[in-house]
Simulated scan of single mutants.
Amino acid sequence: MNAPLSLAPSAPANTSNDTDWSQRVAHAFSRAAPHYRRHARAQAAMAEALWSYLPASADHILDIGCGPGDLAYALAAHYAGARLTGVDLSYAMLHEARKQPHQQQLTWLCADAARLPLADASQALIVSNLAIQWCPDLQATLEELRRVIRPGGRAVINTLAPGTLSEIEQVWRQPHAPAGVLSFRDAACHRLAAHAAGWSGITVDQACERFHYPDLRAVMDSIKGVGAQVSGRDVRRTRGDIERARRRYETLRDHRGLPVTYQRLTLVLDA
């Protein structure tokens, strides 16, 4: 079994490490692309929270961090006739997206959310499910989304808050090695960044979502299997470390299995 995994970047904003970080994120998700859907139960469930915030109509829609395209295709079906662009850092994820039945209104674009090759005020709606936690400069990313949204447009974004993967951190923590779960930004940080980025209407809703798995391998597959393994390059886990983590996790088991907690933030930003 591999070392514990990271779901959020620790790279500071505005550093020369940003490009390297983006390349590492893209590589991790590209490795996971062929089997992403098999492990993405939590991601798919959390995407459902976006729908109640979406406007009744939109003609140009941008899906940030679209992965293999499931949400993008659902949006295209919901907004009949809309032009939809799916953006992802990973070419391999976009390759998976293109395997689905072709729809004329869908375009796939390999790009960084903080540097979009799109015109100003070109989008009516931006949707993103669990992607912006990977962006090291949150304010710059929200400024870029604000740039491409039309006046009166809306962005609806799921991301993650502190407390996410708390069980992973607990069971892997050791004096000689980090748990591998990095810091997430809280709701206040997102509100401040959105305000500084120029969004006029800002709502941030938080919800705790918990998923259960039969054993430690299934828990870790639910993270590694969706590409969320970027940090931990210098961490080496022994068989003893893995067995210790397994025993610790078993103390958290309930009748549904081993829990994995996500603190979901849903940002609703109006231009």
Results as ranks from 00 to 15, higher is better:
53 Y>I: 01
60 H>E: 09
65 G>Y: 00
65 G>I: 01
55 P>D: 10
64 I>A: 04
56 A>C: 08
39 H>T: 08
84 L>T: 03
49 A>W: 11
61 I>M: 07
56 A>V: 12
49 A>Y: 12
37 R>T: 11
54 L>G: 07
51 W>L: 10
51 W>F: 15
70 D>Q: 13
50 L>M: 08
44 A>F: 15
48 E>L: 15
42 A>I: 12
79 Y>P: 04
60 H>I: 03
81 G>T: 01
79 Y>K: 03
84 L>E: 06
70 D>E: 14
71 L>C: 00
67 G>A: 12
65 G>A: 05
31 R>H: 11
65 G>P: 00
31 R>K: 14
50 L>Q: 07
43 Q>K: 09
57 S>D: 13
58 A>C: 11
44 A>H: 15
39 H>D: 13
37 R>Y: 05
85 T>R: 00
37 R>I: 09
74 A>C: 11
64 I>P: 00
77 A>H: 13
69 G>S: 11
71 L>W: 00
67 G>E: 05
43 Q>I: 09
83 R>N: 13
77 A>E: 15
70 D>G: 08
68 P>S: 12
76 A>R: 02
40 A>P: 08
78 H>C: 10
72 A>Q: 03
38 R>F: 11
65 G>F: 00
69 G>T: 04
42 A>L: 12
53 Y>P: 05
73 Y>Q: 08
67 G>T: 06
76 A>H: 00
51 W>S: 10
35 H>V: 14
49 A>L: 14
49 A>N: 14
72 A>T: 15
55 P>M: 13
68 P>D: 10
74 A>T: 09
82 A>H: 02
57 S>W: 00
62 L>A: 04
64 I>Y: 05
42 A>K: 07
36 Y>C: 08
67 G>D: 02
79 Y>T: 03
43 Q>M: 12
32 A>M: 06
61 I>G: 04
79 Y>L: 02
74 A>D: 14
40 A>L: 10
58 A>K: 07
32 A>K: 03
69 G>A: 10
37 R>D: 15
43 Q>F: 05
62 L>Y: 04
53 Y>R: 09
76 A>S: 13
70 D>K: 05
63 D>Q: 06
33 A>Y: 05
69 G>W: 01
52 S>I: 12
46 M>V: 10
47 A>V: 04
67 G>W: 02
72 A>F: 02
75 L>E: 04
51 W>N: 06
61 I>S: 01
76 A>M: 06
34 P>S: 11
75 L>V: 08
33 A>N: 09
43 Q>G: 07
38 R>V: 14
74 A>L: 11
77 A>S: 15
67 G>S: 11
46 M>T: 10
85 T>P: 00
35 H>R: 15
64 I>G: 01
69 G>N: 03
